[in-house]
């Protein structure tokens, strides 16, 4: 796919298009995450993704509108090998998602990274996203420092978020905006530090801790 959309009408401003593939185990919330970013809300009746789903959204970077195409993939392993292959073509960035309440999905990051590597995307902008941080208790959730170590190992920034909570909306936004800026400037992905967090590699965004989320008690993600 070309980086510019194909409309060749004179006078019409062509948008830069960036293709982002979203990977991760079944049920980690890839569909909800992309839906949250593209539609601005939580997908209530999310279903298993069969094959590949597609969503897009235009964002403004500097003075230019660019288009982000999110390719949401099926998590089940059998779809990866022959099916999803086609969709790795001309990808510009990768998002790997795990479920903070399910260590197994975290352990799969390694095999997803191998997958990314096998498609020659190692040097492309990548981010690691721990989803469902509204679920479980601090004891049952993956510790951030463990996730951070893995993220550091692969040289990608880590985000922890929830596609469910409206209060986390900004955070979901920043995941894709980080990629958008990175893709736009075409610089090697460098980690931004926000909200006074000094530790290397963590993007800590204000969690709005003071503001009680409406549905914090029940987890709707699983």
């Amino acid at each position: 796919m070309s980086e510019t959309s194909s409309s060749q009408i004179p006078g019409l401003i062509q948008k830069k298009v960036f293709k982002i593939i979203v990977l991760g185990d079944s049920g980690v919330g890839k569909t909800c995450l992309t839906y949250r970013f593209c539609e601005g809300q939580f997908l209530d009746k999310s279903e298993a993704t069969i094959g590949v789903d597609f969503r897009e959204r235009s964002v403004r970077i500097g003075n230019e509108d660019i288009k982000l195409q999110l390719w949401d993939t099926a998590g089940q392993e059998r779809f990866r090998k022959s099916m999803v292959q086609h969709y790795y073509r001309n990808v510009h960035a990768v998002v790997i998602v795990y479920d903070v309440t399910n260590p197994e999905t975290f352990n799969s990051i390694k095999s997803w990274m191998q997958e990314v590597e096998s498609h020659g995307l190692t040097n492309y902008p990548r981010v690691l996203v721990g989803n469902k941080c509204d679920c479980g208790t601090p004891e049952t959730r993956m510790a951030t420092y463990v996730a951070q170590r893995t993220a550091d190992k692969y040289g990608m920034p880590l985000f922890e978020t929830s596609a469910l909570l409206d209060s986390e909306c900004d955070n979901v936004e920043s995941i894709f905006m980080t990629l958008a800026h990175k893709l736009y400037s075409k610089q090697p992905l460098r980690v931004v530090s926000v909200a006074g967090d000094q530790s290397y590699g963590v993007v800590t965004l204000p969690r709005h801790k003071g503001h009680p989320p409406a549905k914090a008690d029940g987890c709707l993600c699983s």
Binding site: S26, G27, K45, S46, E47, A48, Q76, S222
Partner: peptide, 10 residues
């Protein structure tokens, strides 16, 4: 995997 998909078949 089955339970995961069944639970999401609302």
């Amino acid at each position: 995997q089955v339970v995961l998909d069944v639970n999401r078949s609302l």
